[in-house]
Amino acid sequence: AWEQRKLDKVAEYRNGKGHEKSISSNGKYIVVNSKFVSTNGLVKKFTNIQMEPLVKGDIAFVLSDVPNGRALARTFLISKNNKYSLNQRIAGITPKNNISSFFLSSLMNRSPYFLKFDDGVSQTNLSKKDVENFAEMYPEFFEQKKISALLKSIDNLLAANQ
C-alpha cells in the first residue's frame, strides 16, 4: 500500500554553505550551486575546500530563483563521494534507508507543490519548513526501485533519441 508522508519523515534536510571566497579555477571539488543543478552539471565552479560534503545518493535541491525561473526546485542526484560541496541556497536531501534516492529525486524535481511558491513577481526562496512539508505518496522500497528503473530506462531512451 502506498502511504503519504512528508519529506521530514523520509529524508534529512541540510543547507549548503557560502563558497564565494574559496572558488578556484581548478579546485578538487565541484561547487553545487543553482547553475550547476539547472544545467544538469554542465556549468561548474570549483573549490579546494569541501565545506558541506555531498555523498552518493544525496539530492541537491535548488531553494532560490528569480521570478518564473527554471532552476527553482530542480534536483541533482549525487553519484559519487568526495567530489561535491553544497553551496548556499541549495538544500542537501539525504533519503532515509527505506527511500530510493532516484525515486525521491524524481518526485521532488520541479514538483507543482514547490512551483506554487513562485508568484512570478519576486525572487522565490523556499524555506526549510516549505521543503520539509512536501507530502507525497510512497510505495514500499522494492516498488520504488522498480519505478526508478522504469524511469531511468525512459530517460535513457529519450537521451538516445535526442
Rank of each mutant, 00 (worst) to 15 (best):
K96S: 11
F103R: 02
F117S: 13
M108T: 03
G27Q: 01
T39H: 00
S85Y: 09
I93A: 00
A1F: 14
Y13A: 09
K80C: 02
E136A: 15
V131H: 01
I147Y: 02
F103W: 10
Q123M: 15
L151V: 07
Q144F: 05
T75C: 01
F103A: 00
E52N: 09
N81D: 15
D119S: 02
P95T: 09
A149G: 15
A160C: 14
D8E: 15
S25H: 12
N68D: 08
G120V: 09
S101F: 05
E12D: 15
A159H: 14
I49V: 06
G18W: 12
A60E: 06
D58V: 02
R74E: 06
G69Q: 09
V37E: 03
E140A: 14
A60R: 08
K6Q: 15
A135P: 01
S100V: 06
A91D: 02
N68M: 07
A159K: 13
I99P: 03
R5T: 01
V131E: 01
P53C: 10
V121I: 15
K80T: 10
P139H: 06
T47H: 00
N109Q: 04
D65V: 05
A135H: 11
R110T: 05
E132Y: 02
S34N: 10
Y84K: 01
N48S: 12
S106V: 02
E143W: 11
Y84N: 08
E52K: 10
Q144M: 07
E20M: 12
Q4V: 14
A91F: 06
K28F: 08
I90F: 07
L7K: 00
D118Q: 00
K44V: 08
I154G: 06
S153R: 11
K152Q: 13
K83N: 06
L151I: 04
G69T: 06
K128E: 11
G41E: 00
F134E: 08
F141L: 09
K45Y: 07
K145C: 05
I154N: 02
I78M: 12
T75E: 08
F102P: 07
A60G: 01
G41D: 01
N87E: 10
N33C: 10
A149E: 15
E132K: 05
F46C: 11
L158A: 13
R110M: 01
A149P: 05
L126F: 07
F103Y: 11
L158G: 11
A1S: 15
D58H: 03
D65M: 05
L104Q: 09
E132F: 06
D58R: 02
F46A: 04
T94A: 04
P112D: 09
L115A: 07
Q123V: 15
E143S: 03
T75D: 01
D8F: 13
